[in-house]
Design a binder for these strands. Structure first.
Lengths: 132, 132
DNA sequence: CGGGGTAACTCTCCATTGGTAAGTAGGCAC
DNA sequence: GTGCCTACTTACCAATGGAGAGTTACCCCG
């Protein structure tokens, strides 16, 4: 058979994708920032400079402690924040953006600005869609 | 009691958050684009102009049909893409970006550019973190 | 010396989400 | 009729994320 069914084409594309995605940097970053809490941590740290764990927990109040530690760890691993432990009475942990983290945050602010500028249009589109 | 325990502070912050988040447009948008597939659909449509359902399925090959329909529906609802059905033999469905969708895509390209420029630094940070 | 309080986690359980695979509708080709 | 096409929809199942309690390590008060 010289022609392929749609199912076969999908199958083939899937294999190509598996190989492709492993080494694609923009895709890796996408996975990183496609995490709801990453953007919020970045924004909070950019606003306040240095913040403690509990401060962050209050600022992005909806976050669970589990997800906060998890997010901060991965950001630290990627070199976007620095984690510094001060051995005070109850231990104090501070987080700060690195220059790299700051540069990413600038792009994020662009998204925030877009949201504020266009959210009313989006809302109108939603209302219209739901009405029909 | 005039002072609050940390637990009580967290509880209070949580209530404030619930009220805050419901009406915050930038947060709503964040939830929208914090979906892995949204960015990819946007990028694909911006590249190719109009695409059919199966074309998109092949382009972002890792996507399941379920998630593709789901993503496209929500983008349509938000006025970022248009869906047009042509009643040909097997029905043909085309998707195109609206001007609104295009404007969001421009920001996304900024992120892509950041990724390509900085992914090597991130990778180096990861390696170092994993090594110690 | 023991009980209580604190910060930053860590663990356990459960609900929601996303992936896989199979099924559906309507029409044409055989 | 049987089978195949596109664009879904549905059923099931594994993984992810949230809620909340538990843990560690320390100090202070009585």
């Amino acid at each position: 058979m010289s022609t392929m069914t749609a199912a076969q084409q999908r199958e083939q594309a899937k294999v190509a994708y598996d190989a492709f995605v492993a080494g694609c940097p923009s895709r890796q970053l996408l996975d990183r920032i496609s995490d709801k809490w990453v953007a919020l941590v970045l924004a909070a740290l950019a606003d306040e400079g240095t913040m403690r764990f509990s401060q962050l927990g209050r600022r992005l109040a909806g976050v669970s402690q589990k997800m906060l530690t998890q997010t901060l760890r991965s950001l630290e691993r990627d070199g976007l924040v620095v984690r510094s432990v001060t051995p005070t009475v109850p231990v104090t942990v501070d987080y700060t953006l690195t220059p790299l983290g700051e540069s990413l945050d600038e792009l994020m602010r662009g998204l925030k600005a877009w949201a504020e500028a266009h959210m009313d249009v989006v809302q109108a589109a939603r209302d219209e869609y739901d009405a029909r």
